[in-house]
Write a protein that binds this DNA or RNA. Structure first.
Length: 405
RNA sequence: CGGAGUGUGGCGCAGCGGUAGCGCACUCGGUUUGGGACCGAGGGGUCGUGAGUUCGAAUCUCACCACUCCGACCA
């Protein structure tokens, strides 16, 4: 991608009133744009990051047998009445009417929709277990969106739902997803603390949350010093003084529902091996993918900008040319860009005729892990600098390609 | 929803009774080129919205709207 064509360009100043790092840096660097409170456009580079996060999630979920699909975002009131959530979740749910007064909800989750699919398509224990997921927009009527992209009224989430013939099977799968989540977050670059917490409008039982330490986090977790044993302060009943209280961002959670909360209310039955009609056991599992992007920025940044982990960086390298008057060296940037792109490397290529200082400042702000510079100094070679280190080295183009593929 | 703050060119801000200005960005010309260069010439604003006070309102009053932060709430 040529920087001259990239939409939009990095900004020199942070938006008014921005406090959190993710808000200031993602907006300045051109990853997101705010439409209204809690509502953001994912600009091309922001979308690239979210796509990479989604790909990691997809790979790990598919590996444990989950199937991706896509469900509608506008739901009829009737299906929400089946579980009583049209009333009980009315505060978080956007409810609307069409011109003929028919009532709808904008999706804030999909338990009812999945249970409806299951009761229509699952008839035998042979159809179970079943795990389906999708990536979609969630709408939540937050009274106060805040923290940049960390809490919005409209955001992207991966939600996974599993259905089982027995509680034992559900518990086993629940642990499997929990492990997959740890693997996902490890690949993204998070040091995760797993906590038990209250389930809100989702379930009366406790849920498991995946927390990333960050000062701007809305949750307080209690950590046993020197370990990853942690509890959400909301439900903690022990002696708090023995624990260290830290702020954290909840990037994922998993809810075991059993067979009462949804299956019983909605008639989610199947015929078991013994010929008996039984209720399906149900669980759901969420990861807020746009929140994950914000949390990455909270964890990985310095005073100059973002420092993306390789796994979710919008591009692998940021190639910068420094303009000069020597005709021969001007072409070097184009040549390196062509060679790297040809090798399948994702390159953001800053070929603009701006000052070195401005181009370097933008590179630091955008935060691609590797910066390559081509100039008179490097001649037919390339200068390599890691975003999170000070030093540089001059390399042959072949060596650069070898390191990146 | 309670409390606090802020709304002035694309962005960040100053102006706070006498008809709008700065920096950045943008356009054109020229000079520069390893850490946010410089010179010259330009374009761009119903001062959040509405009512009021006044000879006169960006500026004062009231209402409303929007955004940000704190709290309550919250997968």
């Amino acid at each position: 991608m040529r920087y001259s064509q990239l939409f939009p360009k990095a900004k020199r100043e942070a938006p008014k009133g921005a406090v959190t790092a993710n808000h200031k840096l993602l907006v300045r660097a051109g990853f997101i744009d705010q439409l209204m409170a809690g509502s953001w456009t994912l600009l091309p580079m922001g979308w690239r990051v979210v796509t990479k996060i989604n790909t990691i999630i997809r790979e790990e979920l598919d590996a444990i047998g989950c199937q991706e699909m896509l469900m509608p975002l506008m739901h009829p009131k009737e299906i929400w009445n089946e579980t009583g959530r049209w009333e009980s979740a009315a505060e978080v749910m956007y409810q609307l009417k069409d011109s003929r007064k028919k009532e709808f909800a904008l999706s804030f989750t999909h338990e009812e929709i999945v249970m409806d699919l299951a009761r229509k398509h699952v008839t035998s224990y042979r159809d179970l277990p079943l795990a389906v997921y999708h990536f979609s927009t969630k709408f939540r009527n937050e009274t106060r969106p805040q923290g940049g992209i960390l809490r919005g009224r409209e955001f992207l989430m991966k939600d996974l739902y599993s259905l089982h013939a027995s509680e034992a099977d559900l518990v086993a799968f629940y642990e499997k997803v929990s492990e997959a989540y740890l693997q996902i977050f490890k690949r993204i670059g998070f040091d995760i603390y797993v906590t038990e917490a209250a389930g809100g409008v989702f379930t009366e039982g406790h849920t498991r949350e995946f927390q990333v330490l960050a000062e701007v986090g809305e949750d307080t977790i209690l950590i046993k010093p020197g370990t990853h044993e942690a509890y959400n302060k909301e439900i903690f009943a022990g002696e708090e003084t023995k624990f260290e209280a830290r702020r954290a961002i909840e990037v994922g959670n998993i809810f075991p529902f059993g067979d009462k909360k949804y299956a019983e209310k909605m008639g989610g039955y199947f015929r078991d091996k013994d010929g008996v009609k039984k209720l399906m056991h149900f669980a759901s599992y969420g990861i807020g993918t746009t929140r994950v992007m914000g949390a990455v920025v909270e964890v990985y940044h310095d005073d100059k900008g973002i420092i993306w982990p390789e796994s979710v960086a919008p591009y692998q390298v940021h190639l910068v040319t420094l303009e000069n008057q020597e005709p021969g060296s001007r072409k070097q940037g184009e040549k390196v860009y062509t060679l790297l792109s040809g090798a399948g490397i994702e390159v953001l290529y800053d070929e603009t005729q701006r000052s070195a200082g401005e181009k370097f400042a933008d590179a630091d702000l955008i935060g691609i892990p590797v910066r390559l510079v081509v100039s008179d100094k490097t001649r037919d070679r390339v200068e390599w600098k890691n975003r999170d280190e000070e030093g540089t080295e001059i390399l042959e183009v072949d060596e650069v390609i070898r390191r990146l593929v």
